[in-house]
């Protein structure tokens, strides 16, 4: 039981970090950014290239990954989202295609064989019989720090409040003097950074492979749909529901059913409470 608790907490923290950037875009830009998983993939490979292949310090690898994530987010907004002017279906299809193109690019540069990232923080500690790597422990702590920082940013800064305003009513926000386009651009940049950072830790916990963008994307979609639009707290709670659900299923039932109940949870919430467990009702 203690092992389940520990592993559930650690995995959930990682899932919360992964899903947070996706939630921001979905809440503020009203876009299902299906290329979000590609931020994670590219972030992981950039870190691998800088720190493991070039031998640069790990902090440089993480910084490089985050920087590339920001650039990807900004470029995607400028070149795709803004160009398609709010046509959500076109944006979603384009982002999905972009993810596939990026995957092909990664195969071209790094090959299609899996790579194992060395732990960012090496070492293992045994807690109540469970093996806990410092790597996942640090990922969880960073996840919490990032989430708290994001919460403080959204609640306590002018830009954060502007993001909330655009999330609730873009036209009303514009009338109040907020530039929704600028806010969206910032949001895409932050989302890219969060995705790339999540990708570095996700890859160091699991492995690097060109199609690795799919699994985190599914996790993000699940967390955001179940959690609902615009709720950092909801994202955090649902990340823990999904994380614990997976660990419990694997530990006490059947490992091959790991993702099935997450899917059932999505369907159940879509049917019973379309706005999500913690999301606000949409008025339009």
């Amino acid at each position: 039981m203690t092992q389940i608790l520990i592993q559930g907490l650690l995995l959930s923290g990682l899932y919360a970090l992964i899903a947070m950037g996706f939630m921001l875009i979905f809440s503020i830009g009203r876009t299902l950014n299906l290329a979000y998983g590609a931020y994670l993939m590219v972030g992981g490979y950039v870190y691998f290239w800088l720190s493991q292949q070039l031998g640069l310090p790990k902090i440089v690898g993480i910084g490089g990954a985050v920087l590339v994530g920001v650039l990807m987010g900004l470029l995607k907004h400028r070149l795709i989202v803004k160009t398609l002017k709010g046509d959500h279906v076109a944006v979603e299809i384009s982002t999905l295609i972009l993810a596939v193109v990026l995957q092909a690019g990664v195969v071209l540069v790094f090959g299609d064989s899996s790579k194992i990232l060395l732990p960012i923080v090496p070492g293992v500690v045994t807690v109540a019989g469970a093996q806990v790597t410092y790597n996942i422990l640090v990922a969880t702590i960073i996840s919490w720090v990032v989430i708290l920082a994001l919460y403080a940013f959204v609640r306590g800064t002018h830009t954060g409040r502007a993001m909330q305003a655009v999330s609730m009513d873009p036209k009303g926000a514009a009338i109040s003097g907020i530039d929704p386009d600028r806010i969206n651009l910032i949001t895409w940049g932050i989302s890219g950074a969060l995705g790339a950072l999540g990708g570095v830790f996700f890859a160091s916990y699991t492995q690097l492979y060109p199609s690795m963008w799919v699994a985190p994307l599914i996790i993000s979609v699940a967390v955001v749909i179940v959690g609902g639009i615009g709720s950092i707290l909801g994202t955090l709670i649902v990340a823990h529901i999904v994380g614990f659900l997976e660990v419990i299923i694997v530990s006490v039932w059947a490992p091959e059913l790991r993702g099935v109940f997450t899917m059932l949870l999505i369907i159940g919430v879509l049917v019973m409470r379309p706005q999500g467990l913690f999301g606000r009702e949409e008025t339009h």
């Binding site: 092992q3 650690l10 699994a215 997976e246 091959e256």
Partner: peptide
């Protein structure tokens, strides 16, 4: 499942 990427609970 062959798609498994997190073996921590399995090892536990």
């Amino acid at each position: 499942d062959i798609g498994t990427v997190d073996f921590a609970p399995i090892f536990s």
